[in-house]
Amino acid sequence: MGQAQAVNQEIRALFQPDPAQPSKNVFVNKTPNSGYCASYPGQCAENSVFSIQLPVRFDSKSSLPPGWGVGIKVPANWRRLTVTNAETMETETVEVRITGIGSTYVLSQPAHELVGVSDVLRGHQLLWSGSSWVYAPSPCRYSGVGFFSPNSYRFFWKTPVEALCTKATTATIPSMYFDTLDFAYELRTPNPLGMSSGLYTGSLTYSMGPSGDFSFGSQFQPDDDRVTLDFVLDVQHTLKVDIPPGGNQVVLQPQGGWQSWLDSGRKPVRLFRDQTFLISASSRFSMSIECEHDLGFGSGCGIVDRESGYAGAVDVSVSLPSGLTDSTGQPVNRYPLKRQASAAFQPGIYLDRKPGTLHFEVGPTSTNWLIINAKGRPFRGNITVIWDSEVD
């Protein structure tokens, strides 16, 4: 064997909001199964696990005498790593644990010859304490599958705790090796609704060898001494706003319209219009407004009689659907919008085309001013409402 080196394996998971399951805010594994779960997908699906096969070989350093224990141990406890969004430099914590281990052991000569029987399966059963390697020693657990040839046996064990799982020989084995390393893993990922869009990456390195994180016992030396898992969490958020046809033309009127003024001469107290919109959102976002006519005071935008230059202020606020909260965790009801971006609004679940309302209002002072100075001409102004998912 050459000098021991390291092996790298990418673990990739994706979050995309699912309109059919708006409350399912989880990452989906996108790492192709290899090894055990590729061969036995039904077993892995039943236990919600994924497996990876690494090209790592563990060779015995000498013969194994009768009664020699081959003890396998894996990092079954949760370990933490930090993943970072390269664009925003935001960080999150991911946790991983190894939930299963498997390989194929290869003997220097057929098992049935080593124990002096003619039946191939019986040879594997008699060569080890507790029968063949499909039967995992405690605290590892049986996985239900195995495959053998005269001098090899493929196995996979579940690893609920981080401890040695030992099989003892009943006869001398001149030499053997474990060909490839299969492992199953489980992830704990952050809530993607609190993460910005983009790729979050980070790495976790395990040692391999007699005293390492992955160990096949004191007699077995791997041809790689480290395995590094490179995690990539891909967050692909949705932020989409639909305004009904004609919704971009906002006409401000008194309560009940202009008829009461025309009939009785009663002046309106305020002018307003509520405009609904449909929002789909899976991520934080802020809102702001831009004004064609900036009056230079307050939070509103101006509407102007272009001939006289007289102007009044329009205040804009927003009410967001249930499931979206403000920066203090409260429902969003008539939240004033300004030219400066608001604090972030945060979805608790994925919202798919839920209705919200933009409130446009001219208050009493400006309403009175506009009526006094009206010359039969309209007061106009463009107000742009911005939904921005690029939240710091």
Rank of each mutant, 00 (worst) to 15 (best):
Q53C: 11
R270M: 15
G247Q: 12
A171I: 13
A76C: 15
Q125Y: 09
T159N: 06
A163S: 04
A341T: 12
S260K: 15
S108M: 03
A13G: 02
K167M: 08
D294M: 10
R80N: 09
R273Q: 13
L239G: 02
L14T: 10
V251C: 08
A13C: 11
P347A: 03
Y200K: 00
S283L: 05
N77Y: 05
E361R: 05
E292R: 03
E113I: 12
V134H: 11
V94M: 04
D224G: 06
Y335N: 05
E186A: 12
L181A: 00
P65Q: 07
V314Y: 00
V94P: 02
D182N: 13
G42D: 15
L126N: 12
P19L: 11
Y36R: 02
A168N: 11
K338F: 04
N382M: 08
G35Q: 07
G312D: 07
I98C: 02
S288I: 09
N85R: 07
D352L: 01
F147D: 15
D179M: 02
S175P: 14
K158T: 06
P222S: 08
T166V: 12
N47M: 13
I371V: 10
V227E: 01
P160H: 01
L107A: 02
I372W: 06
F231L: 14
T170S: 11
F27H: 00
T99Y: 00
V318N: 06
N373Y: 11
V385C: 08
R57M: 03
F27I: 01
Q3R: 04
N333G: 01
F27G: 03
H293P: 04
P65L: 03
D59P: 01
D242W: 09
S211C: 01
P110C: 03
G348R: 10
W258A: 05
T357S: 10
I289H: 00
F58S: 08
S286M: 09
Q221W: 08
T205K: 12
S39G: 15
G323M: 07
Q9W: 08
R80S: 15
E162G: 11
P245V: 14
R188P: 02
S129M: 02
K240N: 13
F379H: 06
G2N: 15
T189G: 00
N368Y: 13
L126G: 04
L199F: 11
P192S: 05
S215D: 11
S131N: 06
V94T: 10
V235F: 01
N8C: 05
F147W: 15
G348E: 10
E292M: 01
A311G: 00
Y350L: 09
E95R: 13
F178C: 01
T91L: 13
P364S: 12
G296W: 03
Q221C: 14
R353F: 15
G329P: 08
I371L: 15
L14F: 12
T180C: 04
V145W: 13
L14R: 06
S23G: 11
P19C: 03
S280A: 07
I173Y: 06
N29V: 13
V26T: 14
I52T: 10
S175Y: 14
V304C: 09
P245R: 09
M176G: 06
P41T: 11
G329T: 03
Q221V: 15
P192K: 09
W369C: 00
